[in-house]
């Protein structure tokens, strides 16, 4: 009778709010204020890590004061993303890696740019490139770029 419609399009759209919690809020506010990355030190093992409520290994609380760490480190692993998907941090293609900042014991995931993707190597040194106007979110660091 009629040419049947072959598809119906729809989209789930679920807005929500998310609280960063106390430590991540401090991390972002200090980052905006000082243009530095602040990590937390475990009261038990003294390792320095991304600020959370407790140390993931010891389950001991982190020290009250966060400590500044260098915005340079080593690329521990990476991937290059060519395909689009929802909630992406950038428009593909882009490289995404785990960075171990110098003197710290946890990785920091971020985008790697200013590099030919074929030249990416595990173990290469990278440094943060900061946004001109800091806004207090994780993209105050625009991306990490390889150095030396």
């Amino acid at each position: 009778m009629f040419e049947p419609a072959s598809r119906v399009m729809h989209t789930w759209y679920v807005p929500y709010k998310w609280s960063f919690g106390q430590r991540a809020t401090e991390f972002l506010e200090l980052m905006k204020k000082e243009q530095k990355i602040f990590f937390g030190r475990c009261t038990s093992c003294k390792k320095v890590m991304i600020p959370t409520a407790i140390c993931g290994k010891c389950f001991a609380p982190l020290e009250d004061e966060l400590v500044p760490v260098k915005d340079e480190g080593v690329l521990e692993c990476f991937t290059v993303v060519y395909l689009p998907f929802p909630t992406q941090p950038a428009a593909p293609p882009y490289a995404y890696g785990y960075i171990r900042l110098d003197g710290t014991s946890s990785i920091m995931p971020h985008i790697i740019e200013e590099v030919d993707y074929d030249d990416l190597r595990v173990g290469m040194r990278v440094k943060a490139v900061w946004r001109e106007e800091l806004e207090g979110d994780i993209y105050d660091i625009k991306y990490f770029k390889p150095i030396d």
């Binding site: 598809r7 119906v8 399009m9 729809h10 989209t11 789930w12 759209y13 679920v14 807005p15 929500y16 709010k17 998310w18 609280s19 960063f20 919690g21 106390q22 991540a24 809020t25 972002l28 506010e29 929802p86 909630t87 207090g136 979110d137």
Partner: peptide, 13 residues
């Protein structure tokens, strides 16, 4: 603490 707005947006057919 900081609050951010997010959404889950899943297009499908």
């Amino acid at each position: 603490t900081k609050i951010s707005n997010w959404d889950i947006t899943v297009p499908y057919q």
